[in-house]
């Protein structure tokens, strides 16, 4: 199965400033992928490169096995909702649906009309007067009615109130359920992604820190708490993501393949946000060191 997005050393420079440098990642198709990272990590640049709004300065990117925007067929295969959901303010909802049909040979008019009706949008209302949530829904409708294989959404809910946010994400989930489209959506809020995504990519400073099925990530990361011991030996397949050592206690956030047997540890489940923040925190303090071990652990 081809990847939804496959990049190799992907770099985008503006003059001397790099918006994305040496990004290598592979995002599988058929998933709802959350792309999370702090502001400035290169999420928007990566997504713009994926939909062909930008071209790489160096490196390579393939989307569904093709160069982004290389042809109108490729453009038709990818639906995109840009940040702040730009729409033509002076055109009505109905105009937007018509223009979608004019510029997309794969346009599904029934789907578009059905969605607009379901959302309760007035086709004669100007897009400029829609609420933020309605704008986002209309933008999503335009992207979905193209019947793309991949839907790319750049911070689609960032500016929405909690209710609109939930409604948008519910819409997205029902679209995925009905049409089996692959989705990549970016956010700097993990909680948004947790609800809808089954795959997570954490991007910090152009580097992929974590990528994987959310279920697997949660099953293989735990917080361990126990008394402080010197000369501690951990299984070799454990990776410490975060450690907090006090005088008496030691708390670890570990990624592990083998189960935790040592009864001295109290094992705690993590939620996705803890996990992501731990990785980001490690990146912030450690830079690029990998596979680091506990002080005085082995050798």
């Amino acid at each position: 199965m081809t990847s939804a997005i496959d990049t190799q050393g992907l770099t985008k420079r503006y003059g001397r400033r790099s918006a994305l440098s040496g990004c290598t990642l592979s995002i599988p198709a058929g998933k709802v992928v959350g792309l999370v990272g702090p502001n400035g990590a290169g999420k928007t640049t990566l997504l713009h490169l994926a939909v062909g709004l930008l071209e790489p300065s160096a490196g390579r990117i393939e989307v569904l096995g093709h160069r982004p925007a290389e042809s109108s067929e490729q453009l038709a295969r990818v639906g995109f909702v840009a940040q702040n959901t730009p729409l033509y303010a002076s055109m009505t909802v109905g105009d937007h649906l018509r223009l979608g049909g004019w510029v997309n040979p794969t346009w599904d008019e029934d789907l578009a009309l059905e969605r607009v009706e379901h959302l309760g949008l007035d086709v004669s209302q100007k897009a400029g007067t829609l609420s933020g949530g309605q704008r986002a829904q209309l933008a999503l409708t335009l992207a979905v009615a193209k019947r793309p294989e991949l839907l790319v959404l750049d911070e689609p809910v960032a500016s929405l109130d909690p209710l609109a946010r939930r409604e948008f994400l519910q819409s997205l989930m029902s679209i995925v359920a009905e049409h089996g489209v692959s989705v990549i959506l970016s956010s700097h809020l993990v909680s948004d992604l947790e609800r809808v995504c089954d795959y997570l990519v954490v991007l910090v400073a152009s580097r992929v820190l974590v990528a994987g099925e959310i279920e697997e990530l949660l099953a293989s990361h735990h917080r361990l708490t126990g008394p402080r011991r010197d000369g501690l030996h951990l299984p070799p397949d454990w990776e410490i993501i975060e450690e907090t050592v006090t005088e008496r206690q030691c708390a670890l956030l570990v990624r592990h393949e083998s189960p935790v047997h040592d009864p001295a540890w109290t094992v705690e489940q993590l939620d996705l946000e803890d996990l992501v923040l731990a990785y980001m925190g490690r990146e912030a303090t450690d830079g690029h060191k990998q596979g680091r071990t506990l002080v005085g652990a082995h050798s």
């Binding site: 062909g52 109108s72 990818v78 510029v103 193209k146």
Partner: peptide, 15 residues
């Protein structure tokens, strides 16, 4: 200015 080029250029028409 309004960002609508990102809407226009990601439809199935080459820019």
């Amino acid at each position: 200015e309004t960002g609508t080029f990102r809407l226009a250029w990601t439809q199935s028409v080459s820019r």
